[in-house]
Each structure stands twice: as structure tokens, then as C-alpha cells.
Design a protein around this nucleic acid. Structure first.
Lengths: 106, 106
DNA sequence: AAATCACTTGGCTATTTGGCCAAATGACCG
DNA sequence: CGGTCATTTGGCCAAATAGCCAAGTGATTT
């Protein structure tokens, strides 16, 4: 594998890595409906504000969300809606895995 | 966030986590063209066979690839082609991040 | 049966990640 | 200005991840 190819896949992995956490997936899902401030997301998730803030900055660094400061609050919005297509495919993976499990047990 | 929602996002994250590594993304890309045995992938990647084997078993556990033993070799194949749609979207994220960087520098 | 591929598994270490707490920053209210 | 709310950052620790080497398994060859 040459250097250029490797760099390409590393860049891609960085984006996918940012999605690879239940809390962050939840955030993306919520942000797909409408923008939210950190405090709203913190309420929904029930973790420490600092934890939520760090998750958000990971999404931001990956280029998946953007933020806007308004007054004392920071609002995050989903920047790339195509990310939502992930969910459909992932659901397909889960379903087909579940089917295979059934086959084994049956 | 209730228990059921949490479990859903954890299941989804497990699948995406399996993709969240450059080597594994490369494997998925290769397997999308045709099936490959472990030895072929090992040659392409240039890591220890055991490392490659472990990456493949992570993809298998996530339900992304399946394997078939034929003689002394093990062939892996992509089970869910929709995974390939990830790449298009990820590329979009990278492109739009790059554009934003340009704006900043310019 | 011994040697040899093809692969998986176990063990070890170094690095990364995720969480909380505490402290720092910034806006707003009184 | 002092206090408070919203958020970010730094520090710390526990857990997960990724890599290599070595050892184990299974099929094939001699």
C-alpha cells in the first residue's frame, strides 16, 4: 500500500472514527432534526457537560458539525446530512446479523 | 435517554467502530471489488498476518464481512455493499472541510 | 509421520479513548 | 463590579485498541 493510499484511508478513518461512539451517534441523530445548544444535548444525554462538550468538539474537528455562538450559548448544527445515510445501512447490517443468529439457534 | 435508545445507539456504534480504522477501511474497499484470502490482504497491507487476521475478525464480528474456508485458505467477502456509500459521504466531509480551510488561509 | 503452508489465538506493551472533577473563560444580570 | 450561567480546557485514571511475536490448529505435501 503506497503512502498516498494510506493517507487517504487515514483521512477517511478519522471521519468515521468521529462517528464511532454511541453518544456521538445520538448527537448526530438529534442534530439532524434541528440545531441544539450544548446544554440541551447535555440534558438529553445525562453526562457531565465537559464530556458532552468534548464529544462535540470531536465531531466538529472531523467536519461533521459546525457551531455558532449566540449569547452565552453555543449551538451545534449538522453540517453534512448525508451522514444520516449511515444509519440505514448500519440498520441493515444489524438486521442481517440478527437473521443469521436466528438461523443458528433455530 | 432511555435504556432502549441507548442500546440502539450502542449497537449502531459497534458496527461503525468496526469501520473506524484505516486498515479495515482499506480491506472493505478491496473486498468490495472481489473476495480475498487473508494472505492476499496481508501482502497488500504489509503488516503481520496476525494483525490482519485480527482486523478481519473485527469486521466479521460486526457483521460486515463473511468468510469461507476453502482448503487451507480463508476467503473473506463483503456482506453489506451499502457500506460503500459511506465513502462517498466521507469524501464530501473531507472536501468541504478542505474548502473551509482554504477560506481561512486565503 | 514430519514438514510446511495458511491462519487464529494468547500474551505483552505502548498508545488512545472516555469519563469525571476542578479550574478557566465569556456573556449576562443585578 | 460580583455573581451566575454556559461552555471549554487541563488533569487524572481506568479501560479499550493496535501492534508484534510466539505458540497453537488444520489442511496439504512429501
Amino acid at each position: 500500500m503506497d503512502k498516498k493510499t494510506q493517507a487517504l484511508f487515514e483521512a477517511r478513518a478519522k471521519v468515521i472514527k468521529a462517528m464511532a461512539h454511541p453518544t456521538r451517534l445520538f448527537m448526530v441523530d438529534q442534530l439532524s432534526r434541528r440545531e441544539h445548544c450544548v446544554c440541551e444535548l447535555t440534558d438529553m444525554i445525562g453526562a457531565d457537560t465537559s464530556t458532552v462538550s468534548k464529544h462535540l468538539s470531536i465531531l466538529k474537528n472531523a467536519g461533521i458539525v459546525s457551531m455558532e455562538k449566540r449569547g452565552s450559548q453555543v449551538f451545534y448544527q449538522l453540517r453534512v446530512p448525508c451522514i444520516l445515510n449511515f444509519f440505514g445501512c448500519v440498520e441493515g447490517v444489524l438486521k442481517s446479523s440478527a437473521r443469521d443468529q436466528m438461523q443458528l439457534v433455530k
